[in-house]
């Protein structure tokens, strides 16, 4: 496939879309199926490669999927989960758009800084664990993290 725009969009949003669908109530495997169907459709219709649009597509696809596969009872349980977790759909969408913004900023960090930041903030490793794994001093880890946070704070 030659469409680099699509590849870029896929790489940067696939995980996010899967997580979004899971938050709507899908299980892990289903969320992948739904996300892939949406992305396939986006590729076929050549865009638009925008997160907000893709989120709406995922939501609709998920509703379709529920209609086709679930009994009324299961479906209403799923929607209850969804409504229980979020006051409104817009809030959930806004949350994921913010996460995407964060991801975009993190991608702009220098490679080593990015790695350390993700190990700490996303994977939850302590400074000393990171220092051990990367074979660097704790001070360096601290510096990397603070550089990353400064960049994020200034660009948020």
């Amino acid at each position: 496939m030659k469409d680099t725009r699509f590849k870029y969009f896929f790489d940067n949003h696939y995980q996010l879309l899967c997580n979004y669908i899971m938050r709507l109530g899908a299980d892990y495997d289903t969320s992948e199926d739904v996300a892939q169907e949406v992305l396939l459709k986006l590729w076929q219709q050549k865009g638009p490669f925008e997160l907000a649009y893709a989120l709406t597509c995922c939501k609709n696809k998920w509703i379709d999927w529920c209609r086709k596969t679930s009994s009324d009872k299961v479906r209403s349980e799923k929607w209850e989960t969804l409504n229980h977790n979020h006051e409104s759909q817009e809030e959930l969408d806004a949350e994921f758009i913010k996460i995407n913004k964060l991801n975009t900023l993190v991608r702009q960090l220098p490679h080593k800084t990015k790695e350390v930041f993700i190990m700490n903030k996303i994977n939850g490793l302590t400074y000393s664990q990171i220092a051990e794994r990367r074979n660097i001093s704790v001070k360096t880890v601290e510096n990397q993290i603070s550089t990353a946070l400064k960049f994020l704070r200034e660009n948020w």
Partner: peptide, 24 residues
């Protein structure tokens, strides 16, 4: 807000997008 997003980001499940892309 930023802090919240970082926390949210940490709760995300990991998906293998390479495998998914190959499948797609």
């Amino acid at each position: 807000d930023l802090n919240h997003s970082i926390d949210q980001s940490a709760t995300l499940q990991a998906f293998d997008s390479e495998v998914a892309f190959d499948r797609l």
